[in-house]
Amino acid sequence: MAKVIGAIVVDTERCKGCEVCVASCPMQVIELSKEVNGKGYHFAYMAQPDACIGCANCAIVCPDGVITVYKVNKRA
């Protein structure tokens, strides 16, 4: 069975830490970091990178468009 592996890249300096991506992730991959960016926002990051399926739900709801999504179909 083919397995889908995804990954997201967050532009941390533009992220405003609104958590909308956290709420819309079906695999609970994303969390807000304890660190802050230059503006003092807790930015989003992949807390569970292995669970990401590259569905791009986080990217299409992100108001600031800071998330880029990649996906690979891997045959097991």
Binding site: V20, A59, I60, T68
Partner: peptide, 23 residues
């Protein structure tokens, strides 16, 4: 899979965090 469209400029949006305007 998904990347911000180049038709949005690189300026940081002036909206509050989570505002629907950006989307």
């Amino acid at each position: 899979v998904y990347k911000r469209t180049p038709l949005m400029t690189d300026n940081v949006l002036s909206y509050c965090p989570g505002c629907g305007h950006g989307t």
